[in-house]
Amino acid sequence: MTHATTDPTSDDDHVYLTLSEASPGPEGEARWAYGTGFADPLLGVDTALPDGVDGADLGAYCLMLGDDALILAQRLIEWCTRAPELEEEVALANLGLDLLGQARQLLTRAGQVDGSGRSEDEFAYWREEHDFRNVRLVETPNGDFAHCIARLLLFSTARHALYELLGGHPDQVLAAVAARGVKELAYHREYATAWTLRLGDGTEHSARRMQAALEALWPLLDELFTAHPVELRLGVDPAQLREPFLRALGEVIAEAGLTVPEAAPLAYVGGRAGRDGVHTEALGPLLAELQVVARAHPGANW
């Protein structure tokens, strides 16, 4: 870097500036920055912590939400080359991309406010399973396409409502991520709703599988609406979203000719679950695949 800067944050020292110097002149050949997209997803955004918000709590909460998005994105991209139709494959990849973008911003925010200074990559690639804070709903294996749709329906309906709530959070970064995300989640919810109706109101076979998927995932729903102490300290109570969620979901399920499951919530382990780092056995293999390249080549850029 040759240009002088008096900016104390020095956040212009980014890989993309190296790229821009490598391609001199405004008419330089168009080039893609694939694989180099590790530029700070919160570049130059005011990072100040608002009064009355505890940095450790906010960091922990951003990890919870960021891990939900990261792990579900990873599950969605597993559908690449496996979806029933090309259009659905593209759709699922698009949903995963939105979630990955949200995860990058949330993990970056976590590192800014928790005092560790960790980057999104350090969080994604160098934490162990018990340090991930996602709910168990997002980590369970994909199952069939009906499972994919059922999980998307549950997650996107719940996350859409939560992001609406968080749009008014005192932390401006979290609020901005939520305000952006709520519009994206509206599309996710719409997609999952349309497929739930199509499968539920389709053939006897498709309805049976859609119902089975809802039954299988229903026990994992509770965690999304069980307030964690960290959330309560930040003034966020997801429990208040449970009833409106069940009403909206019940409408979709009824319209699809399906039945709202009555399965009991999956038990916690010693009072702990995903938000405390206690996961199902499915998370380990997922993380192995997610992290293997970064761990095989520590510090590599590509």
Binding site: Y16, E21, T36, P41, D98
Partner: peptide
């Protein structure tokens, strides 16, 4: 979009054009 992969590219282009 949150996951728009073109953001770094846009930022690089704006930076390069202004310097040029």
């Amino acid at each position: 979009y949150s996951g728009c992969p073109a953001v770094a590219e846009m930022a690089a282009d704006v930076d390069a054009r202004l310097r040029a």
